[in-house]
Design a protein around this nucleic acid. Structure first.
Length: 274
DNA sequence: ACGGTCAAAGAGTCTC
DNA sequence: GAGACTCTTTGACCGT
């Protein structure tokens, strides 16, 4: 019966056992230091050797990626791609994250525009909430890193940001969102497994009820056994034979049972128990 | 037009 | 209190 497989899985879920790389996600309540240590152990600092594209200054070399993404929409991605290796193309994009959104004052697009121009004099595409699409290459590198570890320490964040021409904040956000997606996916998987487990248990319950019914009718139909105390008879739900403990020689479906209850656990005792 | 996806913002929480 | 995290929401973009 499929009970065991599913329910073993259920047990694994309950224990939170994960083998997949993305499940280097930290368990709740795990210490921050511990986390960082675990991560730094794996990181060798040389995964992305020679892409020094800019000053390590976190104050922000605005990313070509944004420009490229924006340019893509405007049909100018090719040129921007070429600029990707040149810092001269990197314009400032300071503190977009520190700019409060203007949702409190609906209908004030003018205000937003003001902020946009304040933020990026050189680049009107760099509006705070302008949608950015990461390039395939950027996503691939980020994915690779995420497979190694689901969290980044500040240095790794910096390095990765520099390598990808993104702001560290963007790298950070990408990892946050990626963790959320992973968690969501895992929740869906867990949900499916629980559903299956529930279905299996429902089936098992039905089957046991049916067996009980059959036992009752058997009791009525067989006067000989009626003379025995009810507790001495038991039926194995798997082979559907009435059996007695310690009477292994009997080939008859019916035999005397030990006075103790026949405990049957579908989870710990597979159907092959008989 | 609408729904899905995803980068990003903001609030709240946790750990040190 | 700082910093990193999760959770929730927002808004741009894209495919249908």
């Amino acid at each position: 019966m499929g009970v065991d497989g599913v329910c073993n899985t259920g047990l694994a879920l309950a224990l939170g056992s994960h083998d997949k790389p993305e499940n280097h996600l930290r368990p709740d309540h795990q210490g921050k230091n511990k986390r960082k240590k675990e991560f730094s152990l794996k990181y060798d600092g040389h995964l992305f050797p020679s892409l020094s594209l800019g000053p390590s200054d976190e104050t922000f070399t605005y990313q070509l990626a944004t420009k490229m993404a924006a340019g893509k929409a405007c049909g100018e991605s090719a040129d921007l791609q070429k600029q990707a290796s040149s810092l001269s193309a990197v314009s400032s994009f300071s503190n977009s994250s520190s700019i409060k959104r203007e949702k409190e004052s609906p209908g004030e697009e003018g205000e937003v525009e003001k902020i946009c121009s304040r933020v990026s004099d050189e680049d009107e595409e760099a509006c705070p909430r302008k949608k950015l699409r990461l390039t395939k290459e950027q996503s691939a590198v980020l994915e690779d890193r995420f497979k190694e570890h689901a969290t980044l320490d500040p240095k790794q964040k910096q390095d990765l940001a520099r390598q990808l021409n993104l702001r560290p904040r963007q790298v950070e956000v990408w990892f946050q969102n990626r963790r959320a997606r992973t968690k969501l996916k895992q929740t869906e998987v867990d949900c499916e497994l629980l559903k299956k487990c529930c279905e299996t248990l429902t089936e098992e319950n039905k089957r046991l009820k049916k067996e009980l019914q059959e036992l009752k009718s058997l009791k009525l139909a067989a006067p000989f056994y009626m003379q025995l105390p009810a507790a001495t008879l038991t039926m194995c739900p798997s082979c559907e034979r009435i059996s007695a403990a310690g009477d292994g020689s009997s080939t008859s479906p019916f035999s005397l049972a030990a006075p103790k209850p026949h405990l049957y656990n579908p989870f710990t005792h597979p159907s092959a128990a008989c």
